[in-house]
Amino acid sequence: MSRIGRALLGVALTMAGVAGPAGAARADDVAACGVVYQASRYTGGFTAAITVLNIGTETIRGWTFLFPLDTSATIVDIWNADLLSARSGVVTTHDQGWNAVVQPGGSIHIGFRADGTSAAPTRFTVNDLPCQVVS
């Protein structure tokens, strides 16, 4: 089974309440994705545009995307992803069905508007696999 497949299995097991090591990101995992994060600030808040690139060799079929966000920021609108949680400083999003499949070399475009402030995130994961920040 591919690493993406193992990660998806790990997410499914975790969601079912039977967490196992298959879904956990490890230090020796090679980045499965690249992320470009661009924020624009305005009085009282900011917007962010996120591009997630599939730089791996496997097709992603369904995704969960996580990144940290300062707890002083509150997401008030999000597009191209379903917001599952933004508690404890970690934002968890999921595909919307129509954008669940991402071929190698393909990308996902997510955006959100938030009240408050936050530093640009430096850690991202797709299906519990690490992403590299791309400038």
Results as ranks from 00 to 15, higher is better:
1 M>V: 13
2 S>I: 02
2 S>Q: 03
2 S>F: 08
4 I>F: 00
6 R>D: 10
8 L>I: 14
11 V>Y: 08
13 L>A: 13
16 A>E: 12
16 A>F: 13
18 V>F: 15
19 A>Y: 02
21 P>Q: 02
21 P>Y: 06
22 A>Q: 11
29 D>I: 03
29 D>S: 05
31 A>Y: 04
32 A>D: 00
34 G>E: 10
36 V>A: 11
38 Q>I: 10
45 G>I: 02
45 G>E: 13
46 F>R: 11
46 F>C: 04
50 I>P: 03
51 T>L: 11
52 V>G: 02
53 L>A: 06
54 N>P: 11
61 R>V: 14
62 G>I: 04
62 G>Y: 03
63 W>K: 02
64 T>A: 06
65 F>N: 04
67 F>G: 07
67 F>R: 03
68 P>G: 07
72 S>C: 09
77 D>A: 14
79 W>F: 13
80 N>D: 15
83 L>F: 03
86 A>W: 10
87 R>P: 00
87 R>E: 07
87 R>T: 12
88 S>I: 07
89 G>Y: 03
90 V>R: 03
91 V>R: 09
93 T>E: 13
93 T>F: 00
94 H>I: 06
94 H>P: 02
95 D>C: 05
96 Q>A: 07
101 V>D: 11
103 Q>A: 15
104 P>K: 14
108 I>F: 09
109 H>F: 09
112 F>M: 15
113 R>G: 01
114 A>S: 13
124 F>M: 02
128 D>V: 02
130 P>K: 12
131 C>F: 05
134 V>G: 01
